[in-house]
């Protein structure tokens, strides 16, 4: 019977399958933030004991924790997946993330296909939102005061290298010795419509701001200086290999 079937089989088939399906472009995906820990800086209080009758000349070097910015650091794991629209996976590939971006924004639903470099109007609007004034040293356009970064892709949109406002968060407790397109922990300002997007380009376990600790990303975002007022930021990730 089997041989008969093999030798003279002409099959009448109805296949229920996916056929010539439209492509899915890899837009940024809502990132699953599974844990976080926060820390704040508190300065040690210096003191002196000087004998009476002396005059001491002092040079004071003061630091003050910036209450206009918030820092995020961490690691990212990911996988490529072959999913249907309901989120069921027919196959996936786990991997160590070596390329990609973490996007952070106050906007919950950016229109990724419209992503471009943030212009001065958008940046200015964001500064106004947080009550930043031009005279301050730590406003957004004075922080993101470079235009140096790698090229990268936001969904289907190519962002040309060194075309957008950028900043470089610190490595080993200090500013990186040199700034070029290979310097780690690049952060780039984008906009989608009227929404400002902070794009932190991913590293692979690079030493971060905290000496001896490695991270895949570091990002800073502005926050309201008013004590007790918080800002909600949304996170997305776009992965490469």
């Amino acid at each position: 019977m089997k041989l008969q079937a093999i030798f003279v089989g002409l099959v009448i088939v109805a296949l229920s399958l996916f056929f010539l399906s439209p492509k899915v472009n890899s837009l940024p995906v809502g990132a699953n933030v599974t844990s976080n820990t926060s820390s704040n800086w508190s300065a040690a209080i210096p003191s002196r004991t000087d004998a009476g009758g002396t005059i001491t000349t002092m040079v004071l070097d003061a630091q003050s924790q910036d209450d206009g910015w918030k820092g995020y650091v961490g690691n990212i794991s990911g996988k490529f997946t072959l999913d249907d629209a309901s989120g069921y996976s027919i196959y996936d590939w786990s991997f160590t993330v070596t390329e990609g971006e973490v996007y952070i924004s106050r906007a919950a639903s950016p229109s990724w296909s419209t992503a471009i470099c943030a212009n001065t109007t958008i940046i200015s609007n964001e500064q106004n939102y947080f009550g930043m004034t031009a005279a301050e040293y730590d406003i957004i356009n004075k922080t993101f005061n470079e235009t140096i970064h790698q090229s990268f892709r936001v969904g289907v949109v190519d962002i040309v290298n060194s075309s957008c406002s950028s900043a470089f968060t610190y490595v080993n407790d200090s500013k990186y010795p040199y700034i070029n397109e290979s310097t780690p922990f690049q952060e780039v300002l984008l906009q989608t419509g009227t929404d400002l997007i902070y794009a932190a380009l991913l590293e692979t376990d690079n030493e971060g701001f905290h000496t001896g600790y490695t991270y895949d990303f570091q990002a800073i975002v502005p926050d309201n200086r008013t004590n007790g007022v918080t800002t909600t930021y949304y996170f997305w990730a776009e992965l490469g290999t």
Partner: peptide, 8 residues
Amino acid sequence: VTELSITA
């Protein structure tokens, strides 16, 4: 400064 663990 907040440390995050992200899966994507």
